[in-house]
Structures are given as C-alpha cells and as structure tokens.
Write a protein that binds this DNA or RNA. Sequence first.
DNA 1: AAAGTTAGTGTAAAAGATACACTTAGGCAA
DNA 2: TTGCCTAAGTGTATCTTTTACACTAACTTT
Lengths: 229, 229
Amino acid sequence: MSVDCVIFGFDGVRLNVLIIEREQGGGVSALPGDLIRDDETLDDSANRVLYELTGLSDIYLKQLQAFGDPDRIKGLQDVQWLRNVREEPSARVITIAYYSLVNLQNFSPKAASFARDVRWEPVYDFAKLAFDHNKIVDKALEQLRLSLKYDPLIGFELLPKKFTLRQLQKLYEAVLNHSIDKRNFRKKFLSAKLLKPLNEKEQGVPHKPAQYYEFDRKRYMRIKDKFWF
Amino acid sequence: MSVDCVIFGFDGVRLNVLIIEREQGGGVSALPGDLIRDDETLDDSANRVLYELTGLSDIYLKQLQAFGDPDRIKGLQDVQWLRNVREEPSARVITIAYYSLVNLQNFSPKAASFARDVRWEPVYDFAKLAFDHNKIVDKALEQLRLSLKYDPLIGFELLPKKFTLRQLQKLYEAVLNHSIDKRNFRKKFLSAKLLKPLNEKEQGVPHKPAQYYEFDRKRYMRIKDKFWF
DNA sequence: AAAGTTAGTGTAAAAGATACACTTAGGCAA
DNA sequence: TTGCCTAAGTGTATCTTTTACACTAACTTT
C-alpha cells in the first residue's frame, strides 16, 4: 500500500502541481509518493512523504480517495521502474491519494533521495505521468474546486499570510477556471467579514498600492456553514 | 486490505444503515465488509460484498475514503473475532469505506454466510460497532449530506421509482435532519422541472391522494451543475 | 508631465429565498 | 349521510442575494 500526494501550489497567477522525476526509469514523471510503513497512520504517511520531499510540515493535507485498479501499475515503463526500486515489483499496490495545499512564497521544494528532480507544473497543461497519476490529479482538482466552493478556508491555505484582494480573486479564478467580476467578488468577501485589513499596503508597485488583508479565523468559525461561493 | 460498506436505506420516515451481526465473536455488530481479492478493483470488491450480503446489484455505490489507523483493529473484542476468521489475525488492515444508497421498497436483505443476522438501524440512534465503524458511519453521513446538497440525483437513489413530493421531502428532512417548508420545497423541485408527473395517484389513503412523480434524468443532465439545495 | 497599470467604489434590476394559511379530496366512524 | 381526520395542493409579499456594469484614484516609469 502506498500514498501519493497531489500538492497544489499557487504562484499568484496559475495553479500548479508538484511533480517529481524518477531517478531510475527513463525520466518518467510522477506524483510524490511512497509505500506506507507498517506502524504509521495514513495521514502520518502522507505527511512523511511531504516532509521528505519538500521539507515542509504542518501543511494542509487531506485524503482524497483510494485508487486500486489491479492494472494500475502494469504500464510498460512503470513495470521497468518498479523492478529497480521494489522488492516485489509485481505485487499489487493500492494507493491512497492525498491532496495538499501550499503557497509558493515561503516554499522551496528540494529533490529527495528517490527523485532526480522536483518541479511545478501548471495544472491545466499537463504531461503524461506514471501509473494512473493523471487520473489522480484530475480527481484532486475536481475535489479542490468543490471544496473551495463550500469552504473558503482552503483558499487561504494557498495564499501567503497577508495578501491582497486581487491575489485572492486570481486564486479563485485559477482554481475554478473562469473569470469573476471584481466588484462582486470584493463585495462577497468583505460583507462576509472574513478578511481583516492590515495597516499595510503594497510597496513599489507601478500602480495604486493595494491594501493587505489577513484571514479572520474566528469569524470563519462562526459563519463557515453559511458561506458558499 | 478490506472494503466496508455503509448502506443507507430510507423507509419513508427514517434514514437507516444496514448492520450485520457476527456469527462468531459475541454478537458484536459491524458494517458489512470483506477482504479485497487480489484480482478485483476496489469498486468490484464493494459490489461483491454488497451482492453477497443483500443479493442486490446495480446499486449506487461510491467510495468514501480509506481508514488506516494501525490501531483500528486492536479492540479486545475485535481481536477475538479476528482470531476466529482470519489467517493472520494481527496483520494490519487498511479498509476502503464505501457508501451505498438503496430504497427499502424493493429490497430484502438476506443474511450472508459470514453473518448471523442483518438488520437496519436508524442512523441517528446508534449502538457501538466493531473496529472504527462508528467513525466510518459518521463520515459517510456527513458525505451523504454534502452530496445531497449539490447533487439531487443521489436523493432519488434512496426512493422508489415513483414517489410523491411528500416522500421526497421526508427524505431530505431525514438526511439533513431538519424540517423544511412544504411550499418552498415543492416550488424548488417543480420549478427546476426535475420531476415528471405520472398519470397516477396514491390509492387507498385516508386523505387527499398525492400525485406520483418520477425523476427526469434527461433534464437532470442539463441542469445538474446549477441545482443546489 | 504624460502614459500605463491596478485599486477601489455604487446602483439598479433580476432572481431567489423566506415566511405564512386556507381549501380540497379522500377514508373512516358515529 | 354527516362530520371528522389527514395530508395534498396552492399564492403572495417581503427580504436577500446575485448580477451587470464604468469611472476616478494612486503610484511608477519614461
């Protein structure tokens, strides 16, 4: 049994997914993942993979679902790679997929031992990945969209601690994949009072500087069941 | 690895969950489930469990999530039961939980080989189950509620093919666990045109007979992304 | 000083949600 | 056969939410 993580990162413009390139096996790309150890919970396992790959902990992480088609690891290149790294390369592997949200500002992925390279790929423009990992990414994106609609909190996981309304809007547009009216967007968040304005504005920008806000967690706790985007 | 199924059934008044009582192991109740076979997909496995237990196939069935705490099968009674039925009673078992929807009209559960008894339990009034099965039921109910809000289709899975508006409303009230205004409820479904009126009314009821409807799948396909309850 | 860029703001119209009470059709019992 | 019980079925007014839409303000660069 394994875990695989779909790690979403927002760079201010586009929604990205973290991809690793395998050390052995012809440069095929894949989601970060590993076999589950015998004494760890599923969540622990996903957190460990995340930590080993990125150095980050205390990150938003949520189980998506299990993928267990017996043929999911039977692709030609997949079999070759498994022969190199697994004791029982043809043993069936059910994987538990997780998705995770980070903001790209305070973040630098480092290549872990089992990977040659780590990089961000824009989520709407995607190469073929190993195993059934494309399917997993599709499902994760679908779930992310749904979650964003009924839980504003997860949006804030993708942003830095302080942010402008434009950043927040760009994030919604990137995830939902359509544009949104600026005035109506601002109205919605400001009237819900989910944002605390800070005594700080953008600096050095070649236009009117924007107000910084932070997320108001207390307020969120009170209204979370009523806020739908 | 195993699958466990939370099978919801609506009897016209209350939402129920199908529970089995173990043949060995002191009459502890549990969700229907079984080990996953080596050559079947996860969905196939859940369908098989469902078929073996209830004789039903072609039933709405959806993966909930995996539960994999290493200690989830370490309860005293659980260990005793496992010693009787498993080759490796202390081996770690990750379970993939499914939830399933049936209507109780054309349905009669039959006790399968591995169970002493099969029965419906009302979902809001629940005894202790084996392993972490109470947690699984809680999660399944939470998911069912959420799904019902953004996908009217799953409501119809719990009803007979023809039904009255009162039945539909009682279902929503049972799942969401609060009462709903009759006129507004009817307005919502009728104006969405999700219901096809049949040339048939209730018979033999001691009050004004209600119109029967059936679900309009074609219409549903067209509007499903816009209908939220 | 002019040009370029994004921030920030209000309103009117339409759609949707909410609250609320009486008449109708049938079965049953006195 | 009359009266009673029960759930079906229906409309409106008010409030809330959503939508569509365009200009001025503040800052940097040239």
